[in-house]
């Protein structure tokens, strides 16, 4: 199939882009890397009147660190994240997670801003921002908003971003010396969207989680910061604490059924991932007891 006809304009600056979005409202779509938008256009699932290409706005590119905050520009491509020593040092969870995002040719075009604004509940990066307690920076003609990642995503392909705003950057605290992270997803094939995934980060004090942020994805209409982690912090994790945490997780999940998995299967796999995460971060394989015949 070929895309429906649309107009195209290339924004020269964030201000220019915001003016265009203000003028055209929801008739316009922002074109960043295009790796989710273009398939929708080609399949005629989306038919905007205007594409505002922000790809040439250099101020939206780049990775920097200052005062303990890592800032990633919205146009930063997945491949840039994958290869960035700054990210590897300050947000190794992202380095690990990005390798699960699609395939090299997609990662060469896809951007972090595009992925977050697209808000596919099965994609990796939204959950990572939640797991890393990131701030999503958006700009409108009336100024900038700084939104906690956990508050940013509101539904399937839905965020708090208004049609007249632009996601400009993501900021997150740099990893501390006692930070630990975990990433895993269950997917049918390499690069596929996850059936269930988990992007987690924690602070370890000895063998105790001082903090644990569990960003689950593909378990509902948006990535989930699991409140169940509170059962795992503050004291050495026991099997019964983990069981409590798994039960609590089960209660807060609202997974959807699709061709890959039933809701019950997603709940099951999410509980498995939690155990695997805790066991891995604590170096205690016995907590992730594999089924034995």
């Amino acid at each position: 199939m070929k895309a429906s006809a649309f107009s195209y304009t290339r924004a020269s600056s964030v201000t220019d882009a915001l003016d265009l979005l203000a003028l055209h409202g929801d008739q316009a779509k922002v074109l960043s890397g295009g790796q989710s938008l273009m398939p929708a256009l080609n399949l005629r699932l989306s038919a905007p009147a205007l594409l505002v290409d922000i790809g040439a706005i250099s101020e939206l590119r780049g990775i920097s660190e200052s005062n303990g905050v890592l800032k990633i520009g919205a146009l930063t491509r997945h491949v840039d994240i994958l290869r960035s020593p700054d990210i590897a040092k300050h947000a190794p969870l992202l380095t690990e997670a990005i390798a699960y995002v699609a395939h090299p040719a997609i990662r060469n075009k896809g951007t972090i801003g595009g992925s977050l604004a697209h808000a596919d509940p099965a994609s990796e990066l939204p959950a990572c921002t939640i797991g890393l307690d990131a701030i999503i920076v958006v700009r409108g003609r009336n100024g900038e908003r700084r939104i906690q990642a956990a508050d940013f995503f509101t539904g399937i392909y839905e965020t708090v971003l208004s049609p007249e705003e632009l996601l400009v950057a993501v900021e997150m605290p740099v990893a501390k010396s006692n930070s630990a992270h975990f990433f895993h997803e269950y997917a049918r094939r390499k690069g596929d969207y996850a059936i269930v995934g988990l992007a987690a980060s924690g602070i370890l004090e000895g063998d105790v989680f001082a903090d644990l942020r569990l960003g689950f994805f593909a378990v509902g209409d948006r990535p989930l910061l699991a409140a169940a982690s509170k059962h795992l912090t503050g004291k050495p994790v026991t099997a019964s604490m983990l069981a409590d945490a798994q039960a609590a997780l089960d209660a807060e999940l609202d997974p959807q059924e699709d061709q890959q998995a039933s809701a019950g299967m997603r709940r099951y796999l999410a509980r498995q991932l939690m155990a695997r995460c805790v066991a891995t971060l604590l170096g205690r394989p016995e907590l992730d007891a594999r089924p034995r015949a």
Partner: peptide, 29 residues
């Protein structure tokens, strides 16, 4: 496939491999 999955249209743009079906010609300015 025209939706970025099969890879048959892979080309290099500015040295990077990309899916040519997921890039507009106007973006290749």
């Amino acid at each position: 496939c025209e939706h970025g999955v099969c890879g048959a249209c892979t080309v290099r743009v500015n040295g990077d491999i990309v899916r040519a079906c997921l890039l507009l010609a106007v973006q290749a300015e």
